[in-house]
Design a protein around this nucleic acid. Structure first.
Length: 611
RNA sequence: GCGCCCGUAGCACAAUGGAUAGUGCAUCGGAUUUCUAAUCCGACGGUUGCAGGUUCGAAUCCUGCCGGGCGCGCCA
């Protein structure tokens, strides 16, 4: 059946090929088919005639006429029009669209997903925040965009590994360990002055880590038996740079971060550790040095990145004090990803890291890898607002609004949905008050409400079918609800233009998934949900407003009126609603947002509140 | 100074090089005897920052300028 762009693409290609066989065209130009933007232009369009005009030595309109005549022959094609400078616009028969609704109904939440591709898997690395503190709101956006991208790529048929890279060694985690030690001492002696330097972590969470330290497994040998007080003393006696503080702080923060992400429905297939990667670092760079790709200068080791990917200088991998730089391990890590068999690496970074991209690409180029194998999506910053007013992100030194707090405040669905309402590279205003509001200006509410309404109609139809209904109504309802053995519903029973329009829209989801995955833009799926919800809500209200033509018969109808009801039309609409609901669910599933079957209306009456 | 990103309606943002540049919010006007009530319809609103260029066709690609953001450590 012809409802996806690739089907139409094939149809037009075959038409051009047929014309070539007949000698009507030379056929050296490949046609390209797209969906139309406007309904007046039909369902699909091709600009073939304009693109090919020069090579064919014909006028575009003339070519278009020839192609149109050929396309007209397909049974699913209702009509073909030549328009404007030479567009060939193609419209499918309404029955073709209605029949195609079987796909979302049969596939359910998998609708829109494509068969696995025979390609190298894609690695998507995201969040990768240092295990030195709780995640903040900005990390949340990266997490949701990354997770939605993983879901989207999988729907498009890619094999994908979702990955987290822990920077679990180096100065930052050492400072966290030291900070725990400092706070431990302060618990025992509150008059102790804080260290003079600014490097240590002063957040409240570090105090908490210190308080809970005596129970930490890292200290099993140090702090056993006796009272908490005694165990605290034993720990505080350890030197500030004791490795056990580092291990304790790091392990606790890793667990805390993963717990926050799990709450946000974000999970990983693989977690890589910098400690593990770094084990082979000396060997790795010694080899590069032997091959002349890394050079020692002034006691430091430089990678020969100058002149690659726009890099204007060589980059340090080992400092003169003998420490390896972040870049050194990062590069080794990415080389290792390629060794693990990934054809493509997509990294999601905060926008402030954009200067790092050429360096990484240049590094890969030095190693002889294609630099394009690394794709970086930069996620722009999030402005937290409440009713349009900026929310202060920093309460005091070291503290900020954490991702945990945000999720608890507005809920997982709202958090995810709102993070997906903008393209990753544009700044995002996150209005907390708006996200909680149950009004149509809250996009999360609007989308979920639309889905709940669809479910409510089906629920009501079930009730009807189970109750007292006239002769013939029960089996029509059963057909509409998709029960086995029910009589078929003729395609023509769904007849309104807006019904056909919405059918076409939801049937575009498989194409939308491919396009969004290709563009790495999960936010398009949210737009899809928004559009479908809007179209349906409009239809719903309009049907009801007319009174004479709701989807289901109103409860107040008399037995005579019920007997005269057009149950076949109702059945066709129920089937249509099941298809819409499947498409909305599938799309929300890619966003990782729940599709509720009913809305919970708050009792304290939000509508009384002033805006 | 060099490099990257961005500039679209009052605001927030869409738009594979396609046709009359869309959607939400806000504002104003209207509908509504609920199948879930908070829904819906309409109007207003644009020299796509400016000037050139490429193209049958430019918001989109190229060049220059103007304006905004960010990055340019032997930091992480």
């Amino acid at each position: 059946m012809l409802v996806a762009s690739k089907d139409l693409q094939k149809l037009v290609e075959q038409a051009v090929e047929e014309l070539r066989r007949q000698g009507a065209v030379k056929g050296s130009t490949a046609p390209h088919v797209t969906r139309t933007k406007s309904e007046e232009h039909g369902d699909f369009t091709t600009n073939y005639a304009m693109v090919a005009a020069k090579a064919e030595g014909r006028r575009p309109r003339e070519l278009a006429e020839i192609l149109a005549r050929e396309l007209q022959r397909h049974p699913d094609v209702a009509d073909v029009q030549v328009a404007g400078p030479g567009f060939v616009n193609l419209r499918l028969r309404p029955e073709t669209w209605v029949r195609a609704l079987e796909a979302p109904i049969a596939q359910g939440e998998r609708f829109g997903s494509h068969a696995p591709r025979d390609e190298a898997p894609i690695n998507v690395e995201f969040v990768s925040a240092n295990p030195t503190g709780p995640l903040h709101v900005g990390h949340g956006r990266g997490a949701v965009v990354g997770d939605a991208l993983v879901r989207l790529l999988r729907a498009a048929g890619h094999r994908v590994t979702a990955e987290y890279y822990w920077n679990d060694r180096g100065r930052q985690v050492r400072e966290l360990g030291r900070s725990v030690a400092i706070r431990l001492r302060q618990i025992l002696d509150p008059s102790l002055p804080p260290p003079a330097d600014e490097n240590w972590y002063r957040g409240e969470y570090v105090r908490e880590l210190a308080r809970e330290a005596p129970a930490g497994p890292a200290f099993a040998g140090v702090a056993s038996g006796e009272s908490t007080e005694a165990r605290l003393r034993a720990l505080a006696a350890l030197p500030e740079d004791d490795e056990r503080f580092v291990a304790y702080g790091r392990d606790r923060m890793q667990l805390a971060i993963l717990a926050t992400l799990a709450k946000l429905r974000v999970g990983f297939d693989y977690q890589e550790s910098e400690r593990r990667i770094a084990a082979s670092i000396a060997e790795f760079y010694a080899e590069l040095q032997r091959r002349g790709l890394a050079l020692e200068r002034d006691g430091a080791l430089f990678l020969a990145t100058e002149g690659k990917e726009g890099e204007d200088k060589d980059r340090v991998v080992r400092k003169s004090d003998g420490e390896w730089t972040y870049f050194a391990t990062d590069l080794l890590y990415h080389a290792d990803k390629l060794r693990r068999g990934f054809g493509r690496m997509i990294n999601i970074w905060g926008a402030d890291h954009h200067g790092y991209i050429p360096r990484m690409r240049a590094g890969l180029a030095v190693l002889g890898h294609p630099p394009q194998a690394l794709e970086v999506l930069l996620v722009q910053m999030v402005n937290l607002l409440s009713d349009g007013q900026p929310v202060r992100m920093s309460k005091r030194s070291g503290d900020f609004v954490t991702l945990d707090e945000l999720i608890d405040e507005v809920g997982v669905d709202a958090t995810r949905y709102i993070f997906l309402t903008r393209r990753h590279d544009s700044q995002l205003d996150f209005d907390i008050a708006l996200a909680k509001r149950k009004t149509l200006d809250n996009p999360v509410f609007y989308a979920q409400y639309g889905h709940a309404r669809l479910s409510a109609i089906l629920r009501r139809a079930e009730e009807l079918a189970a109750g007292q209904v006239p002769e013939g109504a029960r089996e029509r309802l059963a057909a509409g609800l998709g029960r086995p053995g029910a009589p078929p519903i003729p395609e023509t029973a769904l007849s309104l233009p807006e019904e056909h329009r919405l059918a076409r829209r939801i049937l575009a989801l498989p194409d939308a998934v491919l396009e969004a995955a290709e563009a790495r833009e999960p936010h398009r799926i949210v737009y899809f949900v928004q559009e479908v919800s809007q179209a349906f809500q409009s239809y719903y209200t309009a049907r009801w407003k007319r009174h004479d033509d709701p989807i289901l018969p109103p409860a107040r109808l008399s037995p005579e009126e019920l007997a005269a009801w057009d149950w076949e039309r109702t059945a066709a609409r129920l089937r249509w609603i099941r298809a819409i609901r499947a498409a909305v669910r599938a799309a929300l599933g890619i966003a990782g947002v729940e599709a509720p079957d009913r809305m919970e209306w708050s009792e304290d009456g939000d509508r009384e509140e002033e805006g």
